[in-house]
Every structure is written in structure tokens, then in C-alpha cells.
Amino acid sequence: MLIPGSGPVAQLTQISAPLLFWAGLLLIPVAGFMAACARADHVPVWAAKVVVAGNALWVLASLALPLAGLIAPNGLGWSFVLIQAAAVALLAGLEWRAAQHRPAAV
């Protein structure tokens, strides 16, 4: 939704439309990789680590951009950033936990 909705979301949040667009575009191959992992009978350890690390980096980047002054979201923009960062952090935690409890392929 970030690709076609980057303009309207940018107007509401004061987050750059190109940043939103390219973030959305970046997520397409990421989603494909995660879908392939989800369909595998045994997820390789390296793949699980890549997914968890990628999500952790997404959260860090989401928080670092406004805190460093690289973007200046309005109140709704801050809510957008914080809610999606919290959701991705939750997913990373669940993925990490699942990877610890599930036998993974080497």
C-alpha cells in the first residue's frame, strides 16, 4: 500500500512521498523471501536470522530517521512511525522465538 498510497500518506504524515514509495518497493522482494521461507518445510537457520535481523534493522531505521532529524513527521506521522515500528518489533520477537523452538535446516 505504500507504493500507490505514498502521496496521500505523505500529505497526512509529513513523511516524504519518495521515502514511503521506495520503502514500499523495497518490501516487495522482502515479502517474497519471507513467503518462500514460510512455505518451506524446514527454514534454514541463516534465512530465519536474515528475517529477524531485517525486521530489527527496519525498526531501528524507522526510529533513527525522525530522531536524527532526517524526516520531520507531524503528530500523525509519529504515530504512523511508532505503530509500524512496534508491529515490526513484535513480529521480529515472535519470529525469533519461533526460530528458537522449531528445528531449522542448516
Rank of each mutant, 00 (worst) to 15 (best):
G93Y: 11
L19P: 01
E95D: 13
A35F: 13
L12I: 03
F21I: 06
W78M: 11
V50D: 00
W96C: 03
G7C: 06
C37R: 12
A104T: 15
S62H: 06
A99L: 10
Q84D: 08
S62G: 13
W96A: 15
G5F: 12
A48V: 00
W22Q: 03
A38R: 13
V106H: 15
Q100Y: 05
A68C: 14
V81W: 08
T13P: 07
A48Y: 11
W22S: 02
G69I: 07
V45F: 07
R39E: 10
A36G: 07
L25W: 00
M34T: 14
A38W: 09
L26P: 01
D41V: 11
L65T: 04
A89N: 00
M1K: 01
G93R: 09
L12M: 06
L25E: 02
P44C: 08
A85L: 04
G75W: 12
L94E: 04
V106A: 15
A10V: 02
S6M: 10
V30P: 08
P73Y: 14
A38M: 10
S6N: 12
A47K: 13
A99K: 04
A87H: 10
H101F: 12
A47S: 15
Q84W: 06
Q11C: 04
L82R: 12
N74R: 03
L19Y: 00
A35N: 05
L12R: 09
L25Q: 00
P103Q: 14
P66S: 08
L57D: 09
Q11N: 13
G93E: 12
P73D: 07
A36F: 13
S16T: 01
K49E: 13
V50E: 02
W58Q: 10
L82E: 04
G75C: 01
G54F: 02
Q14M: 04
F80L: 11
L19F: 06
I83P: 04
L90G: 03
I15Q: 05
V52G: 03
L65C: 02
L76M: 09
L2P: 00
A40I: 10
A56Y: 02
A86I: 11
Q11A: 15
P103R: 15
S79W: 14
W22N: 00
L2S: 03
A105Y: 10
G24H: 00
A99E: 11
A61M: 13
A86P: 03
L94H: 04
A53V: 07
P44H: 08
Q11S: 14
N74G: 07
A98Y: 08
F33E: 03
W58M: 12
G32F: 14
P8L: 04
A48H: 07
V59L: 09
N55D: 10
R97N: 09
A47D: 12
Q14P: 00
L26K: 00
Q84M: 04
P29I: 04
I83R: 13
F33N: 09
R97I: 03
L90E: 01
L57K: 05
L65I: 07
V45E: 15
A87R: 13
W96S: 04
H101V: 10
A86C: 08
A48I: 04
